[in-house]
Design a binder for these strands. Structure first.
Length: 293
DNA sequence: CAGATTTGACCATG
DNA sequence: CATGGTCAAATCTG
Protein backbone atom coordinates (compact mmCIF):
# COMPACT_ATOMS: atom_id res chain seq x y z
CA UNK A 1 0.00 0.00 0.00
CA UNK A 2 2.63 2.46 -0.48
CA UNK A 3 2.00 4.53 -3.44
CA UNK A 4 4.17 4.49 -6.45
CA UNK A 5 5.48 7.84 -7.56
CA UNK A 6 3.07 7.91 -10.40
CA UNK A 7 0.16 7.11 -8.17
CA UNK A 8 1.28 9.78 -5.80
CA UNK A 9 1.41 12.37 -8.52
CA UNK A 10 -1.92 11.38 -9.88
CA UNK A 11 -3.40 11.42 -6.47
CA UNK A 12 -2.13 14.88 -5.78
CA UNK A 13 -3.31 16.15 -9.10
CA UNK A 14 -6.70 14.67 -8.60
CA UNK A 15 -6.93 16.15 -5.20
CA UNK A 16 -5.90 19.53 -6.39
CA UNK A 17 -8.47 19.30 -9.08
CA UNK A 18 -11.11 18.49 -6.57
CA UNK A 19 -10.26 21.35 -4.36
CA UNK A 20 -10.36 23.61 -7.33
CA UNK A 21 -13.76 22.27 -8.18
CA UNK A 22 -14.98 22.99 -4.72
CA UNK A 23 -13.63 26.46 -4.93
CA UNK A 24 -15.33 26.93 -8.20
CA UNK A 25 -18.57 26.15 -6.52
CA UNK A 26 -17.96 28.87 -4.02
CA UNK A 27 -16.99 31.40 -6.58
CA UNK A 28 -19.87 30.86 -8.84
CA UNK A 29 -21.12 34.36 -8.34
CA UNK A 30 -18.20 35.94 -9.95
CA UNK A 31 -18.04 35.27 -13.63
CA UNK A 32 -14.49 36.35 -13.70
CA UNK A 33 -13.46 34.03 -10.92
CA UNK A 34 -15.43 31.35 -12.57
CA UNK A 35 -13.50 31.76 -15.72
CA UNK A 36 -10.22 31.56 -13.93
CA UNK A 37 -11.34 28.51 -12.09
CA UNK A 38 -12.25 27.02 -15.38
CA UNK A 39 -8.75 27.51 -16.56
CA UNK A 40 -7.30 26.05 -13.43
CA UNK A 41 -9.43 23.01 -13.76
CA UNK A 42 -8.54 22.70 -17.35
CA UNK A 43 -4.92 22.84 -16.45
CA UNK A 44 -5.35 20.10 -13.93
CA UNK A 45 -7.07 17.94 -16.43
CA UNK A 46 -4.33 18.46 -18.87
CA UNK A 47 -1.68 17.65 -16.36
CA UNK A 48 -3.43 14.48 -15.42
CA UNK A 49 -3.86 13.50 -18.98
CA UNK A 50 -0.25 14.17 -19.76
CA UNK A 51 0.91 12.21 -16.79
CA UNK A 52 -1.22 9.30 -17.80
CA UNK A 53 0.05 9.39 -21.31
CA UNK A 54 3.61 9.51 -20.13
CA UNK A 55 3.09 6.63 -17.79
CA UNK A 56 1.41 4.60 -20.45
CA UNK A 57 4.22 5.26 -22.85
CA UNK A 58 6.79 4.27 -20.30
CA UNK A 59 4.88 1.15 -19.50
CA UNK A 60 4.57 -0.02 -23.03
CA UNK A 61 8.19 0.74 -23.54
CA UNK A 62 9.51 -1.30 -20.69
CA UNK A 63 7.00 -4.01 -21.00
CA UNK A 64 7.32 -5.17 -24.52
CA UNK A 65 3.99 -4.30 -25.91
CA UNK A 66 1.68 -4.82 -23.10
CA UNK A 67 -1.81 -3.62 -23.06
CA UNK A 68 -3.23 -1.47 -20.35
CA UNK A 69 -6.08 -0.86 -22.65
CA UNK A 70 -9.45 0.43 -22.68
CA UNK A 71 -12.14 -0.15 -20.26
CA UNK A 72 -13.66 -2.87 -22.24
CA UNK A 73 -12.37 -6.01 -20.84
CA UNK A 74 -8.85 -6.75 -19.98
CA UNK A 75 -7.88 -6.49 -16.49
CA UNK A 76 -5.08 -8.35 -15.18
CA UNK A 77 -6.88 -11.41 -14.42
CA UNK A 78 -5.69 -14.64 -15.46
CA UNK A 79 -6.06 -17.65 -13.55
CA UNK A 80 -6.97 -21.14 -14.34
CA UNK A 81 -9.93 -20.78 -12.14
CA UNK A 82 -9.80 -24.42 -11.64
CA UNK A 83 -12.21 -24.83 -8.92
CA UNK A 84 -14.13 -27.94 -8.61
CA UNK A 85 -16.93 -26.92 -10.76
CA UNK A 86 -18.35 -24.66 -13.31
CA UNK A 87 -17.38 -21.28 -12.21
CA UNK A 88 -16.42 -18.68 -14.61
CA UNK A 89 -13.50 -16.78 -13.38
CA UNK A 90 -14.64 -13.83 -11.50
CA UNK A 91 -14.43 -10.64 -13.38
CA UNK A 92 -11.50 -8.66 -12.35
CA UNK A 93 -12.01 -5.98 -9.94
CA UNK A 94 -13.28 -2.84 -11.45
CA UNK A 95 -10.44 -1.15 -13.06
CA UNK A 96 -10.87 1.33 -15.70
CA UNK A 97 -13.97 2.38 -17.42
CA UNK A 98 -15.52 5.44 -16.07
CA UNK A 99 -16.16 5.57 -12.43
CA UNK A 100 -18.44 8.16 -11.00
CA UNK A 101 -19.23 8.55 -7.38
CA UNK A 102 -22.21 10.47 -6.22
CA UNK A 103 -23.84 11.08 -2.95
CA UNK A 104 -27.53 11.00 -3.26
CA UNK A 105 -30.55 10.95 -1.08
CA UNK A 106 -32.23 8.28 -3.01
CA UNK A 107 -31.40 5.87 -5.67
CA UNK A 108 -33.29 6.76 -8.67
CA UNK A 109 -33.05 7.21 -12.34
CA UNK A 110 -34.86 5.69 -15.19
CA UNK A 111 -32.35 2.97 -15.60
CA UNK A 112 -33.26 -0.49 -14.57
CA UNK A 113 -30.84 -2.25 -12.33
CA UNK A 114 -30.65 -5.77 -11.16
CA UNK A 115 -29.09 -6.42 -7.84
CA UNK A 116 -26.51 -9.14 -7.92
CA UNK A 117 -24.92 -8.98 -4.56
CA UNK A 118 -24.55 -7.37 -1.21
CA UNK A 119 -21.64 -7.25 1.15
CA UNK A 120 -20.73 -6.08 4.56
CA UNK A 121 -17.92 -3.63 4.30
CA UNK A 122 -15.16 -3.35 6.76
CA UNK A 123 -15.34 0.03 8.39
CA UNK A 124 -18.81 0.81 7.44
CA UNK A 125 -21.94 0.40 9.35
CA UNK A 126 -23.93 -0.45 6.32
CA UNK A 127 -23.42 -3.04 3.71
CA UNK A 128 -22.85 -2.29 0.10
CA UNK A 129 -25.19 -3.42 -2.61
CA UNK A 130 -24.12 -4.30 -6.12
CA UNK A 131 -26.17 -3.73 -9.19
CA UNK A 132 -25.71 -4.29 -12.85
CA UNK A 133 -27.79 -3.15 -15.73
CA UNK A 134 -30.79 -5.30 -16.42
CA UNK A 135 -29.76 -5.36 -20.03
CA UNK A 136 -26.37 -6.77 -19.42
CA UNK A 137 -27.09 -9.79 -21.52
CA UNK A 138 -29.84 -8.23 -23.51
CA UNK A 139 -27.79 -5.50 -24.93
CA UNK A 140 -24.37 -6.07 -23.62
CA UNK A 141 -24.73 -3.14 -21.34
CA UNK A 142 -21.92 -3.32 -18.88
CA UNK A 143 -22.98 -0.55 -16.59
CA UNK A 144 -22.78 -1.33 -12.93
CA UNK A 145 -23.53 0.46 -9.78
CA UNK A 146 -22.62 0.10 -6.15
CA UNK A 147 -24.59 1.70 -3.41
CA UNK A 148 -23.79 2.17 0.18
CA UNK A 149 -25.37 4.22 2.84
CA UNK A 150 -23.15 6.82 4.36
CA UNK A 151 -21.93 6.10 7.80
CA UNK A 152 -22.73 9.40 9.34
CA UNK A 153 -25.65 10.29 7.20
CA UNK A 154 -27.92 7.32 6.84
CA UNK A 155 -30.16 9.27 4.59
CA UNK A 156 -27.51 9.64 2.05
CA UNK A 157 -26.15 7.02 -0.22
CA UNK A 158 -22.79 6.93 -1.74
CA UNK A 159 -23.41 5.54 -5.15
CA UNK A 160 -20.67 4.55 -7.48
CA UNK A 161 -21.43 4.10 -11.11
CA UNK A 162 -19.04 2.06 -13.11
CA UNK A 163 -19.10 2.06 -16.82
CA UNK A 164 -21.56 3.70 -19.06
CA UNK A 165 -24.87 2.44 -20.20
CA UNK A 166 -24.86 1.21 -23.71
CA UNK A 167 -28.34 -0.07 -23.56
CA UNK A 168 -31.28 1.66 -24.96
CA UNK A 169 -33.85 1.21 -22.32
CA UNK A 170 -37.04 3.05 -22.88
CA UNK A 171 -37.73 3.35 -19.25
CA UNK A 172 -34.41 4.90 -18.78
CA UNK A 173 -34.72 7.44 -21.46
CA UNK A 174 -37.92 8.52 -19.95
CA UNK A 175 -36.16 10.02 -17.04
CA UNK A 176 -34.99 13.50 -17.59
CA UNK A 177 -32.55 12.99 -20.27
CA UNK A 178 -30.91 16.23 -20.95
CA UNK A 179 -32.56 17.19 -24.11
CA UNK A 180 -29.48 18.60 -25.61
CA UNK A 181 -27.44 16.56 -27.87
CA UNK A 182 -25.85 13.37 -26.93
CA UNK A 183 -23.60 13.26 -24.05
CA UNK A 184 -20.44 15.00 -24.80
CA UNK A 185 -21.06 17.73 -22.41
CA UNK A 186 -20.74 15.98 -19.23
CA UNK A 187 -17.73 17.82 -18.21
CA UNK A 188 -16.38 20.74 -19.91
CA UNK A 189 -13.04 21.11 -18.40
CA UNK A 190 -12.01 17.77 -19.54
CA UNK A 191 -9.78 18.08 -22.46
CA UNK A 192 -10.34 15.49 -25.02
CA UNK A 193 -8.38 13.21 -22.88
CA UNK A 194 -9.69 10.49 -25.01
CA UNK A 195 -12.94 10.57 -26.62
CA UNK A 196 -15.21 12.21 -24.25
CA UNK A 197 -14.02 10.57 -21.21
CA UNK A 198 -14.86 12.06 -17.96
CA UNK A 199 -12.39 13.93 -16.02
CA UNK A 200 -10.44 12.26 -13.47
CA UNK A 201 -10.82 13.10 -9.96
CA UNK A 202 -10.47 10.68 -7.26
CA UNK A 203 -12.86 10.52 -4.51
CA UNK A 204 -11.19 9.26 -1.53
CA UNK A 205 -13.66 7.93 0.75
CA UNK A 206 -12.32 7.46 4.08
CA UNK A 207 -14.49 5.31 6.04
CA UNK A 208 -14.72 6.70 9.39
CA UNK A 209 -15.08 4.01 11.78
CA UNK A 210 -18.44 4.31 13.09
CA UNK A 211 -19.77 2.62 16.06
CA UNK A 212 -23.26 2.03 16.90
CA UNK A 213 -24.34 -1.43 16.53
CA UNK A 214 -26.01 -0.20 13.46
CA UNK A 215 -27.22 -3.51 12.31
CA UNK A 216 -27.71 -3.50 8.68
CA UNK A 217 -30.72 -5.53 9.09
CA UNK A 218 -33.40 -5.44 6.55
CA UNK A 219 -31.59 -4.06 3.67
CA UNK A 220 -33.11 -3.52 0.39
CA UNK A 221 -36.77 -3.71 0.30
CA UNK A 222 -37.72 -5.18 -2.98
CA UNK A 223 -39.85 -3.31 -5.31
CA UNK A 224 -39.54 -0.05 -3.59
CA UNK A 225 -39.09 2.70 -6.06
CA UNK A 226 -37.87 5.99 -4.90
CA UNK A 227 -37.73 9.12 -6.77
CA UNK A 228 -36.13 12.39 -6.99
CA UNK A 229 -32.46 12.71 -7.19
CA UNK A 230 -31.61 14.96 -4.44
CA UNK A 231 -28.08 15.61 -3.94
CA UNK A 232 -25.89 14.20 -6.47
CA UNK A 233 -22.37 15.17 -6.63
CA UNK A 234 -18.80 14.47 -6.92
CA UNK A 235 -17.61 12.62 -9.76
CA UNK A 236 -14.53 10.85 -10.34
CA UNK A 237 -13.30 8.55 -12.87
CA UNK A 238 -10.22 7.08 -14.04
CA UNK A 239 -10.08 6.05 -17.54
CA UNK A 240 -7.16 6.04 -19.72
CA UNK A 241 -9.15 6.32 -22.77
CA UNK A 242 -12.31 4.62 -23.35
CA UNK A 243 -15.66 4.09 -22.03
CA UNK A 244 -18.10 6.69 -22.69
CA UNK A 245 -19.51 9.20 -20.44
CA UNK A 246 -22.13 8.62 -18.16
CA UNK A 247 -25.12 8.93 -20.27
CA UNK A 248 -26.97 10.73 -17.67
CA UNK A 249 -29.69 8.84 -16.17
CA UNK A 250 -28.29 6.02 -14.42
CA UNK A 251 -29.82 4.62 -11.50
CA UNK A 252 -32.98 3.09 -10.55
CA UNK A 253 -34.07 0.60 -8.12
CA UNK A 254 -34.66 1.23 -4.66
CA UNK A 255 -33.36 0.27 -1.55
CA UNK A 256 -33.17 -0.12 2.05
CA UNK A 257 -35.41 0.05 4.88
CA UNK A 258 -37.45 3.06 5.48
CA UNK A 259 -39.27 3.21 2.32
CA UNK A 260 -40.97 6.46 2.44
CA UNK A 261 -38.82 9.06 1.06
CA UNK A 262 -41.11 9.38 -1.82
CA UNK A 263 -39.99 12.57 -3.17
CA UNK A 264 -41.15 14.67 -5.92
CA UNK A 265 -38.89 14.92 -8.74
CA UNK A 266 -37.61 18.34 -8.64
CA UNK A 267 -35.23 20.12 -10.76
CA UNK A 268 -33.65 22.15 -8.15
CA UNK A 269 -31.18 24.84 -8.33
CA UNK A 270 -29.17 25.15 -11.32
CA UNK A 271 -25.91 25.65 -9.81
CA UNK A 272 -22.32 26.08 -10.04
CA UNK A 273 -22.10 22.83 -11.76
CA UNK A 274 -23.57 24.27 -14.80
CA UNK A 275 -20.02 24.85 -15.69
CA UNK A 276 -19.15 21.30 -15.38
CA UNK A 277 -22.24 19.61 -16.47
CA UNK A 278 -23.84 21.40 -19.27
CA UNK A 279 -26.58 18.96 -19.48
CA UNK A 280 -27.35 18.71 -15.89
CA UNK A 281 -28.81 21.92 -14.72
CA UNK A 282 -30.34 20.24 -11.81
CA UNK A 283 -27.14 19.11 -10.36
CA UNK A 284 -26.53 20.72 -7.09
CA UNK A 285 -23.04 21.16 -6.07
CA UNK A 286 -21.63 20.58 -2.73
CA UNK A 287 -18.67 18.51 -3.17
CA UNK A 288 -18.32 16.16 -0.41
CA UNK A 289 -14.79 15.28 -0.24
CA UNK A 290 -13.55 13.61 2.76
CA UNK A 291 -10.33 15.07 3.77
CA UNK A 292 -9.05 12.51 5.93
CA UNK A 293 -5.49 12.08 5.42
C1' DC B 1 -44.27 -18.95 -14.51
C1' DA B 2 -40.87 -15.39 -15.45
C1' DG B 3 -38.06 -12.18 -13.67
C1' DA B 4 -36.02 -10.04 -9.52
C1' DT B 5 -33.77 -10.54 -5.05
C1' DT B 6 -31.28 -13.02 -1.41
C1' DT B 7 -27.45 -15.21 0.19
C1' DG B 8 -23.44 -18.00 0.63
C1' DA B 9 -19.56 -19.44 -1.89
C1' DC B 10 -15.93 -18.46 -4.94
C1' DC B 11 -12.12 -15.77 -6.50
C1' DA B 12 -8.95 -11.68 -7.41
C1' DT B 13 -6.16 -8.47 -5.28
C1' DG B 14 -3.27 -6.14 -1.97
C1' DC C 1 -4.79 -13.95 4.88
C1' DA C 2 -8.33 -10.32 4.89
C1' DT C 3 -11.28 -7.84 2.09
C1' DG C 4 -14.20 -6.75 -1.54
C1' DG C 5 -16.54 -7.97 -6.05
C1' DT C 6 -19.07 -11.39 -8.62
C1' DC C 7 -21.49 -15.70 -9.48
C1' DA C 8 -25.34 -18.61 -9.21
C1' DA C 9 -28.66 -21.58 -6.78
C1' DA C 10 -32.50 -20.90 -3.96
C1' DT C 11 -36.20 -18.16 -2.92
C1' DC C 12 -39.58 -14.63 -3.40
C1' DT C 13 -43.06 -11.71 -5.77
C1' DG C 14 -46.32 -10.07 -9.17
Amino acid sequence: MSMAPYEQVMDDLARGQQFATQLQGLLRDSPKAGHIMDQILHTFSRAIHTAKAAAAAAASASASGSEVTDGASSGGKRKPAARGGPRKACRTRTQDSSVVTKNMRSLEDGQTWRKYGQKEIQNSKHSKAYFRCTHKYDQQCMARRQAQRCDDDPDTFRVTYIGAHTCRDPAAVAAHAPGTAAGCHLISFAPAAAHGTTTSTTTTNSNKVGEDAATGSGLLLPGLKLEGGDLEEVLSSRTPGSSALYGGAAAAAAWPDQGDVTSTLQYGGAGAFGVLFDGYPYLEDILSYDLDH
